[in-house]
Design a protein around this nucleic acid. Structure first.
Lengths: 345, 345
DNA sequence: TTGTAGGCGTTATCAA
DNA sequence: TTGATAACGCCTACAA
């Protein structure tokens, strides 16, 4: 106990047993006599003993840390996702550590390295925009990894993701059914695979509805509130140039809705808006935001399950799980009368 | 390299040097010959060597992990706070690990224990609602700890917090100056110290303005969007019973604003609303939300600085730092004409 | 039911 | 400039 840190030896000394016995108590072994166990436990709490998991890991090899590397926590959706992962870890005897990359690839590398150095048993990662396989692949070569939401092609890692294409298709089809012919897709940048998938669903729905696909209606923007705002001038000048928009996600959609109001247009009446993710905020806008629900918690839970199972089995062949989305209809897209599309799924 | 994990011994073998030399290279010591260093580095990357920080910590005693224990990441304000802490750690050679408690004290205990077991060098903690000194004090007895935003009286730990009382006072005074006489305080529960402070500022401003303090105007609610919503019926029935509200935070304020609109009232025109925190969302509501800016990143940065300094010096006597707030005036409180109060600060 | 004796990967001390 | 050796705190045989 030289340095202030109490060890099992100190505990043993105090309880009058050897360190091995203390270790057995720690492990909850049935071999220890009840009286001994009690004495040891008492000594532990009196000394303020703290288990040194690092030492145990060093000896035993396996760590209980599960790393969550998330691209951007300022998007509420990813917070939901992280919460889903966390809760699932609880039940699985893993300790989840969360790291935020703020959509910064070099920060992401640092964070991953750090988790590896700390002996993480596995990683759930939602790659930052701008990540490259070249830099990530060698790092992740020896650790079970599950990608969530975003996918880096060429990476040998599992994936849990929503059915982006189908979700976007459902949403766009709804807008078309409501009579819109000039429907925009707003948000994200062309390099994002998730966006590609969502745009593909959007295009498919337009074609199925017999509408023309106008590339000018497919707009890029940062995936932030301001990104959504910025799109509005291009959307409504001249007025009626577009009359509806499917947004890359809810954050963009909310920014867009607010800018519409400021431009004198009523979302849901003069202009239809649909978002993607169905974050909690979508219920608390005026009008309520229609959104393609991705069920972030479920996605997170699924990813965590998969990862824990891969860790347990030692087999982490890449698998892919696509989770269904649901169109949650609120007022922002107008035409409440049409029955929900959920039934069609 | 038995178990797949490459050690410095393996690296040394490959490079034809001893593990001590490898260790020196790792530490960037100027003692090693350049040619040796090069050979060792090459061996490391060829073998895919990963530094085992657990082992180093076990040997050396000091860890590089800094734990952030946050009450609730689904409040965007605390995400900002966490980002501030993270960024500051970067510059200080600490690795920040984030854990979310979802406002759940027992989860919080687990998380803290886990961080201690992993040898965290220090903790930044924003205690969950319902935390007790009795359970926290023994845990934190031997580790530098800085509380942020929230304070547990009786805990021997530093605190970085905004000037809640003064912030609330400024906001309330503004509402009074705009001619409101029935001003409510909405959100939070009575047991929260932060709320106590904010309510105290609110009461003080009312008295300074010669207004009566009506306990019925001080309302509790969960600090969520729905919490804000729920307050509205009590606020506007009968119409004009209250004409303005200072909210516990922006999340409550945004929920409240939306419910106002649904009740047929225009925030900023028929009813004045001020929030607290100035989260990013406050700029993206319609109308823009007037808010007492707490500058979450700065608060986080300050807390991280303080903690790192306490770790470095080994002296962690409790200190308190109160950071000033600013009233950011947008449209939700009406009366744009009055000049901003910032100048008075 | 409990004690003894390594060894996990690293760093620090001391020799060479 | 490099190598040998002893800890760090824990767990796991194996012995008692």
């Amino acid at each position: 106990m030289r340095d202030g840190r109490v060890t099992i030896i100190d505990v043993g000394l105090k309880a009058g047993v050897s360190k091995s016995t203390v270790s057995l108590v720690l492990a909850g072994s049935p071999l220890v006599a009840d009286s001994t166990r009690a004495r040891v436990s008492k000594a532990m709490s009196e000394l303020g003993y703290v288990y040194n998991r690092g030492a145990a890991t060093l000896r035993g090899g396996k760590a209980d840390v599960l790393g969550m590397v998330i691209n951007d926590l300022s998007n509420p959706f990813f917070v939901e996702l992280a919460i889903g992962i966390e809760q699932t870890c609880q039940n699985g005897a893993f300790v989840p550590f969360l790291a935020n990359c703020s959509e910064n690839p070099s920060r992401q590398l640092q964070v991953i390295r750090s988790m590896l150095e700390h002996g993480a048993a596995g990683l759930v990662i939602s790659p930052s925009v701008g990540s490259t396989v070249a830099e990530l692949k060698p790092l992740l070569a020896d650790i079970p990894t599950v990608q969530v939401m975003r996918r880096l092609p060429g990476l040998r890692a599992s994936l849990v993701s929503p059915e982006n294409r189908e979700g976007a298709r459902k949403a766009t089809r709804r807008l078309a059914q409501l009579g819109h012919t000039r429907i925009a897709f707003v948000g994200g940048t062309a390099s994002m695979i998730v966006r590609e998938e969502r745009v593909a669903g959007y295009v498919q729905a337009l074609e199925e509805s017999g509408l023309k696909v106008d590339p000018k209606l497919i707009m890029e923007s940062p995936i932030t509130y301001s990104g959504g705002r910025q799109a509005v001038p291009r959307l409504v000048r001249p007025r009626g140039w577009a009359t509806a928009a499917l947004c890359f996600n809810d954050v963009v959609a909310i920014g867009l809705m607010n800018a519409l109001v400021e431009a004198g247009l009523r979302p849901g009446a003069d202009f239809a808006v649909i978002g993607f993710d169905d974050i909690i905020e979508a219920q608390h806008t005026t009008p309520g935001l229609t959104s393609v629900a991705v069920h972030g918690r479920d996605v997170g839970a699924r990813a965590a399950q998969m990862l824990m199972q891969q860790i347990a089995s030692g087999d982490w062949t890449a698998q892919t799980v696509l989770l269904p989305t649901t169109l949650v209809v609120r007022e922002s897209c107008g035409g409440k009368s049409i029955e929900s599309e959920d039934s069609e799924t």
